[in-house]
Write a protein that binds this DNA or RNA. Structure first.
Length: 783
DNA sequence: CAGTGAGCGAGCTTCCGCTTGACTT
């Protein structure tokens, strides 16, 4: 009989701990929560004070059976789940489900995964903290109430299969509101003036001093006038100051900061980061990747110190202890760090290697000395004008942590567009009253930047700041709002923008107009039409849930429950009563929401032009539906990809009704052009030919269409490699991925070694016969 | 694949947080 059974949450942890405990202890894992509210019939008994109806999660049945067996054979069961709200609940569910005898059950928590810490935990067992468990039950019940009562309202009032929740709905709101800020953004313009002056460096060689005028000019005329003044001006150093400055390393990684940096530096999506981190964790190369702690173990700090000394010398070491600020953060957990600091690199896939390297550098830097800088500020006065030029230089005196790692920022506007920003590293030696000769003064038209769109990672950052969601849910939440089609991750090309440049050089002033690309986006989150409609509906009708502080407010109450100051189902009752009233009221009284926008009237027919969400997505409508008999039905046309309810104009909408267009006849059959799901196409003789990107369906002519039809026929001819007279249904075709066999509407792969040209009918039949049955069910949800 | 946009009604959808695989493309 096994004396002791220790149950932890994750199997990797179990393995480590078993090694520390040695004989007499079996360590196993329960893989997180083993029970949850039942999914059907709400899962909460509203008649019995919100009593939760728990069921064993289907994917945990096997684990529970195994745990039962092990617990039966153990003298003492040690519940060693995490020390937070969820962990406490896991311990309690285990106790309930495994029907553990209180006499032989002990609750322990580790503050660190070391032999000493575990030994200490074993020596200091406690009982399950019922208050903490109740705080978790309140959290769980509240989330179920919100999710399962608001979602059905959406099914009725907007569209079936939609969802709402405490976390996801607020995440969508952030993106929708940001998009509207961008739509309504009015760019301002001004003129920035940069001067290049001539000086001498330490060795007496010519050196440039780049400076920016402290004033921006709102108009071209004012900028021009200033340059005219500069023509005859004398430029004098008014002031030189030098100040020391320092920069400190960033904290070690948490889930959220890892996702951000992997996104910025490696272009990983948040779920990709988590999947790669999971593999590193399972291979024992990094510590646990779902954490909000910045704490490093003593062991980690010491080995980092050694490694830094070994690689860079002792002066680069600075031991720093980081503490997580957020309340209820788990000091038991550690920051994400390499398990063995001495390993600079690891094997594995390229992605694993890159993510590991990032984690290693960040951890190292966190224990390294500050970088010391010297900042120089120079002011240059202009004899003919009150404005001054300033130049700022920054020289690294001691690199410190910068030797290994520098955190990136999301600031996409930071480093201008190559028009000079007035800054430079090294400032030539100068002193006050030096007179400089001017090489050039350039006024450049600049524009204020619209707010940036969210990336997956910057959205996680924002959610974390708002206290919404947990390390284990950031990635799934981001995935959910994309799967529900509330949000899309997209690239968008920028647009060309013209800007003026006025240059003073060699005493002459010249003007020019340049162009630049602006507003290009890569992997940014855009709200969809349905996302916007759902968001507006929820903000209008469920303000409390959609409030950015809703989570923070209920968290305070959960804390009160955890401290025994509040009774959990009383707290839920206070929330539920008014909330449920609201749900009923909205169901009864609110209008169906279709996001309808009336754009104006069609000048030709005088009919109303509008857009809305239809059964099959966003649709434009010409004319109004009427209840009268024999009244004309309105015309409909789907919006094209890239067009949105919020931004489409009357003209763009009217264009949609110009299709399908009749181009005339070819071979006595009608040729028409239209736009379908896969873009613009030509229809002729019941065949379809894609128009491609280069041809506009609104202007394309018959000649071009015929050309495309012929090209398609030629391509189709080439597509057929072989036909057999005996079996007309069987053909060898050339597809996108090479040759394949088509038979009775099904396609079959040809083995790589086989030359498709030489296939006989017998060969083909054999391939079809031996083709593996398509396994498994098709996933119901399509993205 | 190249459309749809009327209405009825059955049966379904949905939350957040803990954890890993087991699946297919």
């Amino acid at each position: 009989m096994q004396e002791n059974l220790v149950i932890v949450e994750s199997p990797a942890k179990a393995k480590t701990i078993e090694n520390f405990l040695g004989k007499g202890y079996t360590v196993t894992s329960c893989m997180g929560h083993i029970r949850d509210l039942q999914k059907k019939d709400f899962g909460i008994d509203l008649e019995k004070k919100y009593q939760p109806k728990y069921v064993i999660s289907p994917d945990k049945k096997k684990i529970v059976a195994e745990l039962k067996k092990l617990a039966k054979g153990a003298q003492t069961v040690w519940l060693a789940s995490d020390e937070d709200r969820e962990g406490e609940a896991i311990a309690w569910h285990l106790k309930e489900v495994l029907k553990l005898d209180p006499e032989r059950t002990k609750r322990i928590v580790f503050h660190e995964i070391t032999k000493e810490a575990i030994q200490r935990a074993i020596e200091n067992p406690r009982t399950i903290d019922e208050n903490l468990v109740n705080a978790q039950q309140a959290r769980r019940v509240l989330d179920r109430i919100v999710g399962f009562q608001v979602s059905p309202v959406l099914w009725k009032k907007v569209k079936p299969a939609l969802s709402a929740g405490r976390v996801q709905s607020v995440a969508v709101r952030l993106i929708v509101e940001r998009e509207r800020e961008i739509i309504n953004f009015k760019s301002e313009t001004w003129y920035r003036v940069n001067g290049i002056f001539l000086a001498k460096d330490e060795n007496g060689n010519p050196a440039e001093l780049k400076a920016e005028l402290s004033k921006r000019f709102p108009t071209k005329e004012e900028a021009y006038a200033f340059l005219e003044k500069c023509q005859s001006a004398e430029f004098t150093i008014a002031n030189v100051t030098k100040k020391p400055a320092k920069r400190s390393p960033a904290q070690p990684f948490t889930t959220s900061t890892l996702q951000q940096e992997a996104s910025r530096k490696l272009s990983f999506s948040v779920s990709q980061t988590m999947a790669v981190a999971q593999r590193l964790y399972e291979a024992g190369k990094i510590t646990y990747m779902r954490t909000d702690s910045v704490n490093l173990s003593n062991l980690a700090i010491n080995t980092a110190k050694q490694k830094i000394t070994e690689l860079h010398g002792e002066e680069y070491v600075k031991v720093r202890r980081y503490h997580t600020k957020s309340k209820g953060a788990q000091e038991a957990h550690e920051a994400i760090r390499p398990t063995y600091m001495e390993n600079e690199t690891v094997g594995g896939s390229a992605q694993e290697q890159r993510l590991y390297e990032l984690i290693w550098k960040r951890t190292m830097a966190s224990q390294m000395a500050d970088a010391k800088l010297e900042r120089t500020n120079v002011t240059i006065s202009v004899s003919t004008a009150p404005e001054v030029f300033t130049a700022t230089g920054e020289v690294i005196v001691f690199d410190g942590f910068l030797k290994v790692y520098m955190e990136s920022t999301d600031d996409e506007n930071g480093h201008g567009h190559g028009h000079g920003n007035g800054g430079q590293d090294i400032i030539p030696p100068l002193k006050a009253n030096d007179v400089l000769s001017m090489s050039s003064v350039v006024a450049t038209q600049r524009f204020s930047q619209r707010p940036p769109r969210f990336t997956e990672a910057s959205l996680v950052k924002k959610l974390e700041e708002l206290g919404i969601g947990r390390p284990s849910t950031y990635a799934p939440t981001i995935t959910t709002i994309q799967n529900r089609n509330y949000v899309e991750k997209e690239d968008r090309p920028g647009v060309e923008r013209k800007f003026d440049i006025i240059t003073l050089k060699n005493g002459n002033i010249s003007e020019a107009t340049n162009t630049e690309i602006t507003g290009a986006e890569k992997s940014k989150l855009f709200p969809t039409d349905i996302g916007m409609v759902v968001n507006d509906f929820l903000v209008e009708n469920f303000e409390q849930i959609m409030d950015f502080n809703f989570t923070a407010n209920v968290e305070k109450e959960f804390d009160d429950i955890a401290e025994g100051q509040k009774v959990w189902n009383e707290m839920i009752d206070k929330f539920y009563k008014p909330f449920h009233g609201q749900v009923e009221d909205v169901l009864k009284n609110s209008e169906r929401s279709k996001g309808e926008r009336i754009l104006g009237t069609d000048p030709k027919t005088g009919k109303q032009v509008s857009v809305k969400i239809g059964r099959f997505g966003p649709v434009a409508q010409l004319g109004e539906a009427s209840t009268e008999e024999d009244s004309e039905k309105p015309q409909f046309a789907s919006l094209r990809t890239g067009q949105h309810l919020e931004t489409i104009t009357l003209e763009e909408t009217l264009d949609l009704f110009k299709l399908p267009r009749d181009l005339g006849e070819y071979e006595n059959k009608k040729v028409t052009v239209s736009i379908g799901r896969f873009g613009p196409y030509i229809r002729h003789d019941n065949k379809f030919v894609s128009l491609g990107k280069e041809n506009d369906p609104f202007t394309v002519e018959l000649d071009k269409a015929v050309e495309l039809i012929e090209a398609k026929r030629e391509k189709d001819r080439k597509a057929v490699i072989k036909v057999f007279d005996e079996e007309p249904e069987l053909r060898v075709l050339n597809g996108r991925w090479g040759p394949y066999i088509s038979f009775q509407k099904k396609n079959y792969k040809i083995p790589k070694k086989v030359n498709a040209e030489e296939l006989t009918l017998e060969d083909c039949r054999k391939i079809i016969e031996e083709a593996p049955e398509p396994k498994g069910r098709r996933t119901r949800k399509k993205k």
